[in-house]
Amino acid sequence: MSLTALYQHIEQHEWVDIPEGWLQGRTIYGGLVAGMMMQKALITLADTGRRLLSCNVTFVGPVQLAPVRLAAEILRQGKSVTTIEVRLWQDDAVQSILLVSFGVPRESSIVVNQERIAPTFPEVETLKIAEHHPLAPQCFQQMDLAWVDGQYPCTASRKPDFSGWMRFNPLKHENRKMTEADLLVSMDMWPPGVLPMFKTMAPASSLTWTLTYVHPLQSNVHNWFKYKVFTDYAADGYATEYAHLWDDQDRLIAIARQTVTVFA
């Protein structure tokens, strides 16, 4: 099932079958879970005049390759901002929660342009797209990732963090206009910033994920994006990090902050 077909199914049904090809270990890739909930929120909003402002995802429990139920509620619809909560249910329990805010532009005298400038990367054609390692999560095949700096996961690096180019794999996804749901599906594909420090393969998973949407998407799913992650702190089995995403025109699209559980 393509993402387009999945989104259409979410629009028409309360219960949704998760497509194959998105496993992350024994559970479903968190980005797909977040993207499904975002699609449910967009359908519930039903207002193209209100743009995504921010969202927060809490991954309560593991989602299996089995049907899920998506339930959405508009918590408040004000003059400027609409706030929606989406819950993903499986096995009679809430497994993930999305809290998302949409808003309309408002007149304001306050203008600040201090956004993080996009780094200068080598042309992606000069880089090697990361090959899918047999032990890597199945979901990595859905994206093309090309490291620019930093080390690969599980290479015993002395330092965390990395940057690189990313896009949906053209062999698995038809080219079309990118949506906010696609943004969540794709941006979570990069591993946590501390993973290069792992000496051997070991689990690490997102606990909470907060995303602030900056400039509206003007890209197709086959366009490349720039990504850079920075780890603030890691100890006692948890890490906190933030990441920036720019499109191929160097527009800042999103800023993400994440709490990661570390099992190494």
Rank of each mutant, 00 (worst) to 15 (best):
L23Y: 10
Q249T: 15
T208V: 05
E241H: 10
K228D: 12
S101T: 08
A256S: 15
L88Q: 08
T259I: 10
W22F: 15
K79T: 10
F59N: 04
L52I: 06
E85F: 01
D149P: 05
E73Q: 13
E73L: 10
L45I: 00
A5R: 11
V81D: 02
V100H: 06
L252T: 08
V81N: 07
D182T: 01
T231I: 10
V229S: 12
A243V: 11
T155P: 02
A181F: 00
P62Q: 11
K79W: 03
A72V: 00
A34Q: 07
S96A: 15
V100F: 03
Y152S: 07
D250I: 05
P119T: 06
Y227R: 09
R176W: 01
Q12E: 14
S206N: 14
I28S: 01
N175S: 14
A243G: 11
H9D: 11
F225C: 03
I253H: 05
T240M: 12
F59D: 02
L53P: 06
A93F: 05
M37R: 03
I74P: 01
D161F: 04
T126H: 09
W224C: 06
L127W: 02
H215D: 15
R26Q: 11
R158D: 15
R158T: 14
G193H: 09
V63Y: 01
G164P: 05
P170G: 07
S163R: 15
V57W: 09
A239N: 03
D236R: 15
K40T: 09
A118F: 02
L75Q: 12
I18A: 08
P216N: 12
C55N: 10
T155Y: 03
R167T: 10
V214F: 06
A71H: 04
H132T: 13
A235E: 12
T212W: 13
W224A: 08
L183M: 14
Y238L: 14
R257M: 08
L207M: 12
K79M: 05
K199L: 08
S101E: 10
S205R: 11
L183N: 07
L3P: 00
E11Y: 08
P137I: 07
P191V: 03
W15H: 12
E73A: 09
L98F: 03
F263K: 14
D47F: 06
V100D: 02
Y152K: 08
S80V: 07
V221I: 13
P137M: 05
Q258L: 04
T4I: 13
G237T: 08
L53V: 14
A264H: 15
S157K: 04
F168P: 06
K40H: 07
R116I: 13
L207P: 05
V94G: 02
P191S: 06
R251Q: 15
Y213R: 13
H222Q: 06
A72S: 11
G78L: 02
A66L: 10
P192D: 05
